[in-house]
Design a protein around this nucleic acid. Structure first.
Lengths: 340, 340
DNA sequence: ACCGTGACATCAATCGTTTGACTCGAGAGG
DNA sequence: CCTCTCGAGTCAAACGATTGATGTCACGGT
């Protein structure tokens, strides 16, 4: 490998000169002509600085640590990793990945392993919106929680989906189509912060339209999966005063709505309009008709997290930590129509 | 941060002694008593070696480079990343992630950026079984292609699913259930190496059972998606001599089979048995009845790739490069029964 | 003739480890 | 008494960069 010293020898100057020039700090220290010669030689000879050596000296490694608590094992969340990675790359950074899915207890170990490598900032990712345990890091190190919020008292930025806004848009869309009896199929598990927020959006939409909230139209499955939602959905739809539309906590439960509707002989969207949440590939797009749903902005959240970490490193942002609500756009396909 | 020098001063020995002891190379150079004192102090004071410094000196960074050509953007493949990461972790390694989805042309740049950081080995991941372009790396650096095979002449290990074996098991399962008219819904896109291999498995299963291959039962959709498969599936099933079972290239096309079967009034599995391929969460498990399918061993492939890279680094494996066929287990749910 | 100044460049220390070469005594062997 | 060997450590030079301090030279002003 070609080192800075080799390059200096080749050009006939000192290593210092080369370093200064290649880091663009040579103003007033190296003659412009010499600088050009050095730059030329660097590209000609294909010199690439060794980041370990640089990092050792400067403590700047151009590297982010990405600890995920079970992200890699959840399909849709890999978009988050992609977002982090792309945004990091654009700023000249790379991410080191650790997933702790199978060994929750090693969070501390993981962060140690990252600190050993002098990562400059830490991003802690979850796979659904919740409070996330964060490892202890030096206060000077930027810490960003991705798809989650930091525990009380921890100095960390956070980025989460705007659940309320997404739900609001979804239910407004149903109201705009003419629906008045709109059910909400929530999830019961308290770990999901989104359950409260999406319900808040649902209620806000009904309120602003002057529609009274009918508690019997708000139901909850034990978890967001399709199988868990089927019985709940059946109870909801198999009654005389059934709703004309249902807003579902997840695309998976929306999938259950399709299945139950079909088994009851109801047509989607004419007999039953459906809106989901998540915009999961392979579900939303695969159903017939396509599922109108709210997209979880995983990619964008990943981008925000990386950018924020780097902005803090570069001093472009400082001051108090933020919790950024990422917009959740409504994706319109074919599962909503006016009530029959 | 506590350095080795600090620790040495605290114990009252030279840095050399500490280094030797902590790396377990002190036999005959440091007295056992002293060694114990050093080890004790190291844990007491919480010393962690700086991997940058170590790497600079030894060229061993305990770091793998993971270049993915669009893995992070494909849901199920994140299990591969997880596999890589877990296996790397177990060997004391970490992975640096680069995804080139949005900028194919920068493969070279990416590898440069990894080489700059002295990664010890490179894993190149694809998101479906195919020939993968590999960046130029020093011959001494282990290179493993994950879910793909290296171009002719490139020195790289590879790991792919055993597509033939998986298909064989799937179709055997149908034959064992009593089916004789078994269709195969393939995909037309030539980029998918799996299309040929899965068909080979299908044909082998029929052959060994002495069932003649009926070309009219082999159809292909333009791509593996659900929407693309629907018309093909309809043409296949909406005829008098329709098959009693269909083996599908993907879970997504199997999903299409469910939909078409429902629209034709056919019951799954009694009127039509279905086997898929991939075992995608949220499809295979969400369908009613559950989809019997062949699991793509993404996690296991990731583990194999990382292990192989590290084994080569440690000299536990050498000699010619391998292409490892990972078994694809059949996952039995409820979509297969004897023909009516 | 002397000093100050600015431009250009290099020196040498440093980051935290690793490791081959070396030192220093003590005891063994002749 | 001299030399050799061995055990227990230390020295000091790397690894490849960065950077504050320093040096040198030419030129202009007094």
């Amino acid at each position: 490998m070609l080192t800075l010293k080799d390059l200096a020898a080749a050009v006939g100057v000192s290593p210092s000169a080369v370093s200064l020039v290649l880091n663009d700090r040579y103003a007033g220290r190296v003659n412009e002509k010499t600088a050009q010669r050095i730059k030329q030689a660097a590209t000609d000879m294909g010199y690439v600085p060794n980041l370990l050596a640089r990092g050792l000296r400067t403590r700047r490694t151009q590297t982010l640590g990405l600890i995920s608590h079970g992200v890699a094992s959840v399909p849709f969340a890999s978009r988050m990793l992609e977002g982090v990675q792309v945004a990091a790359w654009e700023a000249g950074y790379l991410a080191m990945l650790i997933d702790t899915t199978n060994r929750a207890e090693i969070a501390e170990l993981s962060s140690k392993s990252l600190l050993q490598r002098d990562v400059e900032a830490l991003i802690v990712a979850a796979w659904y919106h919740r409070v996330v345990e964060t490892p202890a890091v030096p206060l000077s190190m930027p810490l960003v929680v991705l798809d989650g919020i930091a525990p009380e008292g921890v100095q960390a930025d956070g980025v989460v989906p705007d659940e309320v806004g997404g739900a609001l848009a979804a239910v407004r869309h149903l109201i705009d189509a003419g629906h008045r009896r709109i059910a909400f199929c929530n999830v019961a598990d308290q770990r999901f912060i989104a359950r409260t927020l999406r319900q808040r959006g649902y209620e806000a939409a009904l309120n602003e339209a002057g529609i009274e909230i009918d508690p019997s139209l708000i139901v909850a499955a034990p978890e967001p999966s399709t199988v868990a939602a089927v019985p709940v959905m059946r109870a909801l739809l198999d009654r005389s005063d059934r709703p004309t539309a249902v807003f579902c906590f997840s695309d998976q439960s929306a999938f259950a709505a399709y299945q139950v509707a079909a088994s009851l002989g109801l047509e989607v969207p004419d007999d039953l309009s459906i809106v989901g949440f998540d915009d999961q590939q392979f579900i939303a797009d695969a159903l017939v008709p396509g599922l109108t749903t709210v997209r979880l902005p995983h990619y964008e959240m990943g981008v925000w997290a990386a950018r924020r970490a780097i902005d803090r490193l570069q001093g472009k942002v400082d001051g108090p930590r933020d919790l950024y609500l990422t917009p959740c756009p409504l994706v319109i396909r074919g599962s909503v129509s006016p009530p029959r």
